[in-house]
Amino acid sequence: MYTLNTPWVLILLPLPLLIYWLVPPYRQRSDALRLPFFRSLARATGSEIRQGATVLARPRIHMGAAIAIWCLTVLALATPVRLGDPQEITRAKRDVVLAIDISGSMDARDFPGPDKTRIQRLEAVRGVVAGFVERRQGDRMALIVFGSQAFVQAPLTEDLDTVLALLEQTEVGMAGPHTALGDALGLAIRTFEASDIDQRLLILLSDGNDTASRMSPINAADIAAQKSVEIYAIGVGDPDATGEDRLDQTVLADIAKRTGGQDFFAGDTESLEEIYTRIDDLVPRETETLSWRPRQDLSYLCLGLAVSLGLLVMAHGVFRRRITA
């Protein structure tokens, strides 16, 4: 399919005709010999008496070439383009960041599994989160792990297979034994700033309270709210424990409330799966389809034809004068 980027330029096509009608021909004065018997001389020679000013006639081939050159020049200014086949790109309308606690307490083997046997906390979390990621095909996801420090394990990407592979390689203690909950929130906010997508969801999972952050979780939650980041906080630890291993569900609830999200507590693998399923229902996967057609500019062809035609006309004129001479 062919189209013009600036079709209004075609109104210039009749411009030479308007100039021909409105602008008088060029006149050049020349010396003349006045004869009292001019009419008699004209009759004797069989010449026709005309006005002194004449417009030199041009060969028809030159006129045709001039018209063609003008039309090609105007067409080039109108920017003809060839449109390719429609191309469609589907991209996510929501960015999701998974922030997972891998502090030393996640190594505890006290989490009831599907068959009610006690398994490692992180092992249970990995299995459930992997199923959640597989259901979110089409979303852009990032993976953040945190212990004494927070790290981006996988930046925002639509390659969820890579996210799953990195999640599978995550081990307890990789980021240190303590829990830097506030720093993890801050790192998630910086991760979202690299994206131009407005819908931002952070799913935070932790089994303890904040013991190593430079920024308090509440301050980080306030900043997240200002950045339109919605936080869903999940607690998987033991609220009755003491010291660093005690799960502070109150802080998680406050974090979620300040950003318009929700907080959850999972006491076993089954309830953890239900939580991620519920989150899946609350914030379903959304995508948008962008359509475009590749455009190839053809102006150079019109200009090339115009220049070639002009050169041929010039060559024809030179050849014609030589023959006449």
Score class of each variant (00 low, 15 high):
I49G: 03
A306Q: 07
G304V: 10
G186E: 06
L290Q: 10
P24Y: 10
S40F: 02
K116M: 10
E123D: 12
I203S: 03
D95L: 08
I223F: 07
L122E: 05
V229F: 02
G243Q: 12
A306V: 07
F38Q: 13
D85P: 00
I189A: 03
I69T: 07
T90C: 06
L98V: 03
G113F: 13
T277Q: 13
Y232T: 03
R43F: 05
P239G: 08
D115Y: 11
F37Q: 12
Y26C: 09
A142K: 10
H316F: 15
G310D: 05
R285L: 14
E274W: 05
V9A: 11
F38G: 07
G310R: 03
A220W: 07
W21G: 06
P86T: 13
A99E: 05
V152R: 09
A180G: 03
A44T: 12
D31T: 13
L15W: 08
F132V: 10
S30H: 14
A221L: 06
S216C: 05
I11E: 01
D268A: 12
D107G: 13
F265G: 02
V307T: 13
A108M: 14
S103K: 03
R58N: 00
S105E: 04
G46K: 12
G208P: 05
G52M: 14
P217R: 09
D280N: 15
A68C: 05
A194C: 00
T179H: 02
L10Q: 06
L56H: 08
P217V: 12
G84P: 09
P155L: 07
P36L: 09
T73Q: 02
M63S: 10
W21C: 08
S148H: 06
Q199W: 00
G127P: 01
L204W: 02
S271W: 04
S228K: 14
P36R: 12
R82P: 02
V145F: 12
D248N: 14
A325V: 13
R278E: 10
L72P: 03
C71F: 12
L205G: 00
V152K: 07
F151V: 11
P112D: 09
A68P: 00
L33P: 04
A165D: 04
P294M: 05
A68T: 08
K257H: 10
Q120W: 05
L202G: 04
A44Y: 11
M141H: 08
I69A: 07
A108H: 14
P177G: 10
R39H: 13
S148E: 08
M141Q: 09
P284V: 07
N219L: 15
P239I: 11
V313Q: 09
R322A: 11
I275Y: 03
A266K: 03
T289A: 11
L205F: 01
W292C: 02
L75H: 06
L41V: 14
V145I: 15
A253S: 15
I100A: 01
R321S: 08
I67P: 00
P114L: 15
R258Y: 01
V236E: 01
F192V: 05
S195Q: 06
L205Y: 00
R27P: 04
S30K: 15
V74C: 06
G182I: 13
W70M: 05
R136C: 05
I323Q: 15
G147H: 02
P7W: 07
D161T: 14
L41W: 13
E193C: 02
L18D: 00
G46N: 09
R293I: 09
A184G: 11
L15G: 01
T157Y: 05
D245C: 02
M106L: 14
R322S: 10
E168C: 00
G237I: 06
P155F: 06
